[in-house]
Design a protein around this nucleic acid. Structure first.
Lengths: 336, 336
DNA sequence: GAAGTTTCCTGAATCGATTCAGGTTAAGTT
DNA sequence: AACTTAACCTGAATCGATTCAGGAAACTTC
């Protein structure tokens, strides 16, 4: 038997309107009534029915977060940041992990629209702008996370991937590396392209003695990293690169695992490795991994803050928030 | 301008009742009406208002999942399993990470009660049974995840931690280890106790020549692992254990990092390490980590299935589902 | 062809919180 | 004393989907 606002009103000897006011605009209620109502709520263990509230007032207390790889600790950190900010506003997070699957991405967008979330944070996989546009028409704001909004129609919070790619490769070159392989994919993921573009800039700036090849992967997972690494060292030795820049840390960890020949670890003496994201496990790897750090919690917190602002003001202008990446040097890129 | 069921009805030239029937019991509607309605829905881009649905019908399409350590990949895997099962039922997951904080735990329970979730999956930190009991009275079923329900009042899905602890220590003893340290804590976490209990059983069964000491940690994180490891090797050498059983893989990874003396890795020759959970990163560690595997996705999937069943039938009897753990042997416990 | 069944529909009542026009009371002003 | 003003309250209407009693039409049965 659920307790409704009516029960509370009766017990406190006031009208339902007053109870609602105590809950929503405490200023307009006399101290005495407020007290009686508060006590009644306490005694009955009343909990607001969010569905009724949402229906009538149109305010939602959930925000959706659609993530493209739930197994990647980077996104967990981003979610954690968003959570922190959300709880501060009494908001709960609807979580969806698409695992780089268009069908799942669509599914979650549908589900979250039905739920009428207050706003949506999304690390998109496919091209979701048409869908997001429709959500916007229906009053659901969206903020892109970890990806720059192509057409500038939606706000985004991300790290400058091009700068990150550049930092990584500059660091490798400074360490005396000459034959660099970029390992990443698929290339319909925007960040992958950006990181590669940054790498190219660094290579070109350094001059023609720098080789930059691309080793494409089907996904950004540890397994794909292992596969890519195995492919690389199965080449004749003279064709080996002397440094690898992985599009994220999972790939880098996979690469690391595969770069062992006759029980000897090739990293960092023969081949250097640098990753991207600086997840917690990068530091705990076989050879502690150099990486490009993203301020992941900050990204989440900021994205949530922005989406709430936009939900409150539908006419707000989309803004792109870009954080700088940071080079974190560890053993995996020690110069020879 | 949101599209309501009334708009659809008008467009299709039927009553709202019929539209609702098309949505909820297609069998009772003529093919022709169904067709017209479906078309109208399509044309108007109608999306069901879940708040109204929930209010009237009392059915909820969300399930809450409260996790005690969102940074632990183990829980991500469990969530992923739950997600799989949830999407199959058109259900979205409200996600909350308590980070082993009682306040946050309570907060999420409140939030999810307000949301009137259909059910609740929880990897609890504090003693939440009184809270869960109240939720049950209000029609919200709860299933404990990764923890056995003490009083048997709630269903649970977990792995036999005692058996796991035993497997781990038996394996260490078989590998010739004699002085074993259990590293874990805090001890108000049930699993920690169980794993230690299992370890004790194995040690006692093996006879009095086996030493089992306990190294307590304040949390089960990589950092705490590093700290514990540092403490251990700062003892005089003759007081070192020759094997460590960590209560989870994060601790084990931390221990691993700290067990380097004068550039020499002590694992596995001087000290063996075995963890618990078998997270993906265990295999990618400095020395690939032996571990006790939990079928994490399966746990999530099963828990979600059970909570839905219990939500459908409030009189169902609580059941404890226990999966067996599995020993995964890698380099970190190689016998000398 | 009357009575009885099926098959489909309709549309008002309902869920519970919020909102707001209107009412009451007490205090303040002239 | 008469009139304002302010401070609080009340309670019916409302949000949109679902439900269900009641009814129309088509079809059977004898």
């Amino acid at each position: 038997m659920p307790v409704s606002i009516r029960d509370v009103a009766q017990r406190a000897g006031v009208s339902v309107g007053t109870v609602s006011n105590v809950l929503n605009r405490p200023g307009e209620v006399s101290a005495e009534s407020a007290d009686r109502v508060t006590r009644a709520i306490e005694e009955l263990g009343y909990v607001r029915n969010d569905a009724a509230r949402k229906l009538r007032a149109g305010v939602s207390t959930t925000v959706g977060f659609v993530v493209l790889d739930g197994q990647n600790p980077f996104y967990n950190d981003v979610v954690r940041g968003a959570e922190d900010e959300a709880t501060r506003h009494g908001i709960a997070i609807l979580y969806g992990n698409t695992d780089e699957d268009h069908r799942r991405e669509r599914l979650y967008l549908d589900l979250f629209e039905e739920q009428q979330v207050r706003g949506l944070l999304i690390a998109p996989y496919g091209d979701v702008t048409p869908r997001l546009r429709r959500l916007k028409e229906r009053g659901i704001a969206a903020v892109l996370v970890d990806r720059f909004s192509g057409d500038g129609r939606f706000s985004s919070v991300s790290v400058d991937s091009v700068a990150g790619g550049r930092l990584a490769v500059e660091h490798l070159i400074e360490g005396g590396r000459r034959r660099i392989a970029f390992v990443g994919g698929p290339f319909d993921i925007r960040q992958v392209n950006d990181r590669l573009a940054g790498a190219r800039v660094a290579a070109e700036n350094a001059g023609s003695h720098i080789d930059l090849e691309v080793v494409a992967t089907a996904a950004m997972t540890v397994e794909e990293g292992v596969a890519a690494g195995t492919r690389i060292i199965s080449r004749p030795r003279r064709d080996w690169p002397d440094a690898l820049f992985a599009a994220n840390d999972l790939l880098a960890l996979g690469l690391l695992q595969s770069l062992v020949v006759d029980g000897r670890m090739l990293v960092p003496d023969d081949i250097a490795i640098i990753g991207f994201d600086d997840i917690a496990f990068a530091a705990a790897a076989a050879v502690p991994l150099s990486s490009i750090r993203q301020p992941s919690r900050m990204i989440g917190r900021t994205a949530l803050r922005i989406v709430l602002e936009e939900a409150a003001d539908p006419d707000s202008i989309a803004r792109q928030t870009v954080f700088p990446p940071e080079l974190v040097v560890r053993a995996s890129t020690r110069p020879r």
